[in-house]
Design a binder for these strands. Structure first.
Lengths: 162, 162
DNA sequence: TAAAAATTTTTGGTTAATCCTAAATTTTTT
DNA sequence: AAAAAATTTAGGATTAACCAAAAATTTTTA
């Protein structure tokens, strides 16, 4: 349906950081802040800004900074949703505390398929808040589905794993 | 404790494939088989063999092939355990069918921390078999722990996520 | 067993992701 | 308007994964 957005792992991390600062905390994010937060050279941040701009996820103005576009916001929310759904799972199912859950979720969040996240979301009946009480954005593909339908594959080619 | 083994994502995939063929099916794995299975150029397989050899995970003999070392076997079993524990979770908790679970597990298995896998393992009381009835190797760090202990973090630096 | 066929490796690339330093540029402070 | 601070550019480095074509080796087979 929507256009494929191909985000490298770190690009996703920078994007969601941008979202948290800009949208959730309404703060302007400087290159230096990004650089310090991720412990990288400022030049690296500039480079990432340019890449995100090329993908139309931010509007980038030299020496001013990067501002998320509508597309960027949608994409960031998609990623943050994954993170927070995982946190819910880790806390409720594995009894992690919130801080630990956050760290663990960060390791895999951007690698998890939408489908897996939706399945967990359904299992917990579409939670609205993560363990630290932040909003979990809804996903139209997920809402309105019961937790009874089983997930089955198309049974295609032989797996390499198993 | 043991020496850190730094495996690139694909290296892990090739290593576990090698394990399944060599140890579980007792078949010799040729460069061509690997190349066809992963749909890559044979030259790529040779390159991977050399990398795995440099990491002492296989003994590589030109024109003959690669044979897993003891270290390689241990590492492969560690990775395959992750995969299979995830499969158990996907089938039991999210009601995936076995084939689908395998695919989904393959996406994240090598990224999951040992700790996360152990937590799931404990939650299911150290299952001995995956959904397709293959052995789940045991992990001394995991066995013997109850599922009651909660996982809490050391509360260190501020998180970028949440 | 020697030539042909098949397989494997080597050589010499490519692209993408992340990151860096130093110099240049722009903005902000004083 | 200097000086100081922040940011960008330019030019690199490394690592992961790939590939094609040529060379080397093994296997097949006539």
């Amino acid at each position: 349906m929507s256009v494929r957005i191909n985000l490298a792992p770190k690009e996703g991390k920078y994007l969601t950081f941008l979202y948290r600062k800009q949208v959730e905390e309404e703060k302007r994010v400087t290159t230096t802040i990004l650089a310090k937060s991720f412990r990288v050279n400022p030049a690296t941040v500039t480079e990432i800004f340019q890449k995100l701009a090329k993908k139309k996820l931010v509007e980038y103005t030299r020496y001013y900074g990067a501002k998320l576009t509508e597309r960027g916001i949608v994409e960031a929310e998609r990623l943050i949703r994954k993170h927070r759904i995982l946190e819910v799972f880790l806390v409720r199912f594995l009894r992690y505390d919130a801080a630990k859950a956050c760290k663990e979720a960060s390791i895999i969040d951007h690698y998890c398929s939408e489908e897996l996240i939706n399945a967990i979301c359904q299992a917990y009946r579409h939670p609205k808040r993560c363990p630290c009480n932040k909003t979990i954005f809804s996903n139209p593909d997920c809402e309105g589905k019961s937790e009874l339908e089983s997930k089955s594959s198309n049974q295609t080619v032989g797996d390499l794993n198993g």
